Simulated scan of single mutants.
Amino acid sequence: MAQPVRTLPGRAIGPSGAREITRALPEEWPVALVYDGTTQAVMMCTPQDLEDFALGFSLSEGMIKGAEEIRDFELVEHETGSECRFWLVAERGQALTRRRRAMLGPVGCGLCGIDSLDQAVRPLPRVGAGPCFDVAEIESATEALRAQQPLHDETRAVHAAGFLLPGQGLVLAREDVGRHNALDKLIGALTRAGIRPADGAFVMTSRLSVELIQKAAQTGCTTLIAVSAPTAHAVRLAEGAGITLAAFARGEGFDIYAHAERIREGETHVA
C-alpha cells in the first residue's frame, strides 16, 4: 500500500525572495470497491484505514445493510491502487446486482457517480430520537477532534471525522483527503468496534454538505457537528430526515440549523 504522506521538493516564493523547500503532502490513492467480483466504485482516498473505509462506504451507500451480510473480505494491493473485495451473502449480492451502477469519485466531490437527477434528491430514511447534548459538549467537539489529527498536523491538507458520545467526549476519529471518505472510515471503525452511529454525533472539520447528511441518515446518526457552514440543501435534507445540524462550532458557540431539540441550552445562549 502507498504511504499516506510523501515528502516532496518544492520552491517557496515570498516577499523575501525564493528558497528551496520540502513539504509533507498527503497521498491520493485509487481504491476500488468490489462486490462479488464486480467493481461498484473507485474512490480517491488517503491510503490508510482502508478496511474501515470499505466497510463504512458499503454501509453509508447502501451496498449492505449490516456487516452480517459480508461473507468474506480481502484487501488486495496493486502498484497503482488497492482493491477492497467483498463477498456477500446470496440475497444481498442479488439485490446489489439489481441496483448496480458505475461510480467514479474524485476527492472532494458532492454526489459521486449518480446516474439521474432523482438520485440527487432521493428520499432519506428518518432517524430516531437519538441522544441529547449539552451546549459545552457541542462547543468543544471540534477542538477535541483537532487534537486527534496527526495527518493534518503533518500536512495541513486533510479532513477528519470524529464520533462524540454524550458524557464521554470524542471516542474515535479518522482522517482522509476527502471529507466524505473520512466519514466513511469513521462509520466503518464504529461498526467494527460495536458502536452504533445512532448513539452519538458525527463531528466534521469541513462544511456540512449533502453527501454527509445522506450518510448520516443512512447509518442512523442523529446529530452532525461541524467547524464550517451547512449548505442550504443540506439543511433541507436534515430537516426532512430528523437530523440536528450544529455548524460553526469553534469553541465559542455555534449555530443550529435543524432539530434544535437535541441541544440542551440551559443558561448558555448561542449567539
Rank of each mutant, 00 (worst) to 15 (best):
M1S: 05
A2S: 09
L8S: 15
P9A: 13
A12S: 09
I13W: 04
G14P: 09
G14V: 12
P15R: 00
P15W: 08
R23V: 10
A24W: 14
A24P: 15
L33V: 05
V34H: 06
V34L: 09
Y35G: 02
D36N: 15
Q40H: 03
A41I: 13
C45H: 07
D49S: 13
F53W: 15
L55K: 02
S60G: 05
G62L: 15
G62R: 08
G66E: 15
A67H: 08
E69S: 12
D72F: 03
D72G: 09
F73I: 13
E74H: 10
V76S: 14
T80Q: 12
E83H: 12
C84E: 15
C84F: 14
C84Q: 14
R85M: 06
V89E: 15
A90F: 14
E91I: 14
R92C: 06
R92D: 02
Q94R: 06
Q94C: 03
A95M: 09
L96C: 01
T97F: 01
R99W: 08
R99T: 07
A102C: 04
M103H: 07
L104D: 12
G110L: 04
G110I: 10
G113E: 11
L117F: 05
D118H: 00
Q119T: 11
V121E: 11
R126W: 08
V127A: 06
G130D: 11
C132L: 07
V135T: 11
V135Y: 04
A136F: 07
A136Y: 10
A136T: 15
A136I: 15
S140E: 15
A141N: 05
T142H: 06
L145A: 01
R146H: 11
Q149R: 14
P150R: 05
L151T: 03
H152D: 13
D153G: 11
D153Q: 09
A157K: 10
V158Y: 07
G162T: 10
F163V: 02
L164V: 02
P166E: 02
G167W: 08
V171K: 06
L172R: 14
R174G: 00
D176Q: 01
G178K: 02
H180G: 03
N181K: 03
N181C: 11
K185Y: 06
K185M: 13
A193I: 01
I195M: 01
R196F: 07
A198T: 08
F202C: 08
V203N: 00
V203E: 04
V203H: 02
V203F: 07
T205A: 01
S206N: 01
L208M: 13
S209R: 08
L212W: 06
K215Q: 03
K215D: 04
K215E: 02
C221P: 00
V227M: 04
A229P: 12
A232T: 15
H233P: 02
H233D: 13
V235C: 09
L237E: 00
E239F: 03
G240L: 15
I243L: 05
A246S: 09
A247G: 13
F248A: 03
A249C: 04
G251Q: 01
G253M: 02
F254D: 02
I256N: 10
I256E: 03
Y257N: 05
A258I: 08
A258E: 01
A260M: 09
I263H: 06
R264H: 10
E265H: 03
G266R: 10
G266K: 05
E267V: 11
V270I: 13
A271E: 11
A271D: 06
A271H: 07
